[in-house]
């Protein structure tokens, strides 16, 4: 099978063709591995888990951003593969792109649980009650593996590199929708910005390519709604009922071990 890879070595860019023996069960990542191990040791690409849960191997395969380890050759239904680095990113070498901006955007939306009383996040004996229904309001958005593929698909990122992008906005919604979180008002000024939610015109490309079904486009539209509600009707997020706190007796910190050769009642 013919594989065409977009290469870059810091100075020049070029297309390079390889001829690889493939099995139909191989993934694109297997093919790249074969090239790197058997033909060309200089080819650079990222990988780690090989099972679609770490987010390392995002690249553009036959014109569509995808995870290489999740794309089987047989699914492509073509007899040659074209592999490029992710669109909209700076390329450092071959298929390796610079993700620092992406990571910083994620951080800028404060993606952590915020409580009015931060002590509640520190003391061990407390626990939140979250019903399965409440869980459902945000778990989908927690599936994000930070692969950054959605930003490569997004037409808005293509014209505004400062746009926060589907991943960060999706994560902002993930925390806002979390019944344990109380940070909506802290985040709103970051999101309600010309590079924030309002830049999104709902092309849905992010949701289309997301390998984990996170559906960031949905999260962004929900965010817009919540922000409008807040600004126009002065309504704080009512989407999810806040979670209840249960106080539990603290577990004894390493009490005395049981007597030597302690026997369980009834045995185990």
């Amino acid at each position: 099978m013919k594989v065409r890879i977009r290469r870059y070595d810091g100075q020049k860019e070029w297309w390079q063709d390889y001829e690889v023996d493939v099995k139909s069960s191989d993934t694109v990542l297997d093919v790249l591995n074969k090239i790197r191990e058997k033909q060309d040791h200089t080819l650079a690409f990222r990988l780690s888990c090989q099972m679609g849960s770490c987010g390392s191997c995002g690249m553009v395969i036959n014109g569509l951003p995808a995870l290489a380890c999740q794309t089987r050759i047989s699914e492509l239904k073509t007899d040659s593969i074209r592999i490029e680095p992710l669109y909209n990113y700076k390329v450092i070498k071959d298929l390796v792109v610079d993700l620092n901006e992406f990571v910083n955007k994620h951080r800028s939306v404060k993606p952590w649980i915020i409580r009015k009383n931060p002590e509640e996040l520190e003391e061990a004996p407390i626990e939140f009650k979250v019903t399965p229904e409440q869980n459902l309001t945000f778990v989908q958005f927690d599936y994000c593996i930070m692969c950054g593929i959605c930003l490569a698909a997004c037409p808005t990122v293509a014209i505004d590199p400062l746009f926060l992008g589907p991943q960060a906005l999706g994560q902002a919604y993930r925390y806002i929708a979390d019944p344990r979180d109380e940070g909506f008002e802290e985040r709103i000024d970051i999101l309600d910005d010309s590079h924030g939610v309002w830049r999104c015109h709902f092309a849905g490309a992010c949701s289309y390519v997301c390998p984990k079904g996170v559906d960031p486009a949905k999260a962004i539209q929900f965010l817009k709604k919540e922000i409008l509600k807040y600004r126009l009707l002065h309504k704080k997020k009512a989407a999810t009922k806040p979670a209840e706190l249960v106080e539990k007796a603290p577990p004894p910190n390493a009490p005395k071990p049981p007597p030597f050769d302690f026997k369980f009642e009834g045995g185990v």
Binding site: Y89, V91, P155, I159, H201, A203, A205, A217
Partner: peptide, 25 residues
């Protein structure tokens, strides 16, 4: 370092993508 395949024309080029992106264009 430069960005790969970005900019206005790319943004308006929905080929390969979903119907919503065509409608966006």
């Amino acid at each position: 370092e430069k960005r790969y395949k970005t900019g206005l024309l790319r943004s308006l080029w929905p080929y390969n993508f979903n119907a919503e992106r065509y409608s966006y264009t």
